[in-house]
Design a binder for these strands. Structure first.
Lengths: 346, 346
DNA sequence: TATTTTTGTGTAATCGATTGCAGATTTGAT
DNA sequence: ATCAAATCTGCAATCGATTACACAAAAATA
């Protein structure tokens, strides 16, 4: 009732050795069909369940992987995790999820703690590009523990990653605004030491330059991916003597905040000001005024990250491959930017 | 570089025994201060990290707990998880998160798989009240693996739980609508074999009866916690010859769907129809038309569930306590139901 | 029938850390 | 100076499963 049955219990009952039981259970070819069947039946009878810990200790594989994300309560990260699970569960892996809440201390802390728990690998989206987290990453590399970046990566030699083409996503979003006739397009950016935000900035910038518009650095404001931050930032922008007529936000949350502020000022969207977000969070679709956004196919991203991980663990330890997978984003045009509904194709 | 250092390595280097190293590291009182310090330093030098697997095997504790939720991409569950983490991390535990996506097969599958991974306990929100999952739960009890229900519980003897008073939350929400002058209040329910939905239904019903209003079972419709389901259901309700003038939804998501549908029919909220949701998801606050909802203090719920778990694991195995913690919900009144803004206290 | 293969199991070491028991060394008491 | 008590360490077993190696029994070959 309390004690779990082990292979020794089975062995004793059948008057054989634990070794034989183990082999029988694992389908070792050197075991006779008779005993194999007998062991299997007895195991079932006695409610035997393999102790993964013992197996893990012996084999050095825990069949646990760590997933580190800034937070799980955004659809984007939740979906990535779902993708990872879909790919990893069938292979017998468990996923240990850690949140950093964008605090770097938690990031390195989580890595150490996951290593301590003997995870077979870590899939993560970095929180912070500054600081000394590189040290942790390199330590991982040295220990030969597979590390895969998804979405928010750092460029470190030897580490694989799965990302989307943020530059392209931003470029197309901005281009779309320009095509709709907007001329003063502001950009709600974010910590640009993170590649994703840097690339979104660059894509935005390039689209403006390519269209022969004037690029005004003052229209680029760095903020945080929160609704209230979006409001605050938008407030500033609205007070400009020459206020923007469109917003390309690197985050759906700040885009939402911006929209609230714009409305609070009595301005109309998209007639007066147009807004485009990034990530295609579900609420962008469900808002009364649906928000144009860039989809990042997060489930696919998760699946791919998991696949890269599987490749690496199953590989010979000697081979160190580095794989960079880049997904193509998709612009989803909705009401918040669709001027042409009214003006018809300009 | 590849091999991790073990206590044996430290022992060899210092010409002592692994036993001594182990004791020194664990602060055993029988070790001299001198060797304790020496071992500690050498351990640091050699980059020693305790192998949790070995320790787990020996001690029978993995310091992993399983958390099973229907999904993680709702703020409610994500917050509960955060609460659990906040409480458990400082104690050295890791959290393995599993999603059931409301499929019962996944639920029992997850339980088995977590047990297999030797988790020290399972905290969960049940997905489905039908089916034979009771068997799994009882199996857990027999194995003396702590099991804690949070939010969505099942009434099984010997299993602790942390929930909110759904009846009260629903009662107050409904009462609020009645106080605002609404008379035909519909209820968007959900699988009532789950206690939370049953209790929300009962609270709603009681509030109506207590106010002397007629209770009309036809105004109670069972649906699923999804935006689109909310729309569909609302569509039906709007076609009633005697349509409701208020909606109390057991879910914020269906409430959102209902709102969309109401607007699509050209009706005004809250003038024509009032809407109240449940869970206080962030979007209810951020909508242009903010949604009245019932807050469930999910972080607190998570923390409490974790605390109950800690009590149980730290208890003598012989003592089987059963603890039922019930939180009090809070009605957050917002635009979607605040008629008095216009009519002033009726 | 004698000998070589093949087939099926047992023996014992291993993964890394913990711990009861025993033995050694130091300290204190007389 | 002698013996008891206190303090520190080592020995070896243990947690449960895996696996190289050895060996016995059965089957195949000569």
């Amino acid at each position: 009732m309390k004690k779990k049955t082990t292979i020794y219990d089975i062995a004793k009952k059948l008057n054989i050795t634990a070794a034989t039981v183990s082999r029988a259970l694992n389908g070792n070819s050197k075991i006779s069909e008779a005993t194999r069947k007998l062991v299997a039946e007895t195991a079932k009878e006695m409610n035997y369940e393999q102790n993964k810990l013992a197996q893990a200790l012996k084999s050095g594989k825990s069949y646990n992987v760590g997933v580190i994300v800034p937070r799980i309560d955004s659809n984007f990260f939740a979906s990535i995790i779902r993708g990872i699970e879909e790919e990893l569960y069938p292979q017998g892996y468990h996923v240990i999820i850690c949140q950093t809440h964008d605090q770097e201390a938690l990031e390195t802390g989580n890595i150490n703690s996951l290593l301590n728990a003997q995870v077979d690998g870590i899939l993560m989206s970095v929180s912070n590009a500054k600081g000394d987290s590189d040290t942790s990453f390199n330590a991982l590399l040295k220990k030969n523990v597979p590390l895969i970046f998804f979405d928010r990566k750092k460029e470190i030699k030897g580490i694989s990653s799965v990302t989307i083409d943020d530059f392209k996503g931003a470029y197309e979003a901005t281009k779309h605004l320009i095509d709709q006739g907007y001329r003063r397009i502001a950009h709600l950016s974010n910590d640009r030491s993170l590649l994703i935000f840097k690339n979104r900035y660059l894509g935005y910038r390039q689209a403006i330059l390519d269209s022969g518009l004037e690029f005004d650095e003052n229209l680029v404001i760095e903020t945080h991916s929160k609704v209230l931050e979006g409001r605050k930032t938008m407030k500033k922008l609205l007070n400009f003597e020459n206020r923007p007529d469109a917003i390309f936000s690197a985050s759906d949350f700040t885009a939402l905040g911006a929209i609230q502020e714009i409305k609070a000022h009595g301005l109309k969207i998209p007639e007066d000001i147009s807004v485009v977000g990034f990530s295609n969070e579900p609420f962008t679709r469900f808002m009364e005024l649906s928000i144009t956004s860039v989809d990042q196919s997060p489930i696919e991203m998760g699946r791919l990250a998991a696949q890269v991980f599987l490749e690496e663990v199953n590989n010979d330890k000697r081979i160190k491959s580095e794989k960079q997978v880049v997904l193509t984003p998709e612009l989803i045009i909705r009401k918040s930017s669709l001027k042409s509904q009214i003006l018809d194709k300009a």
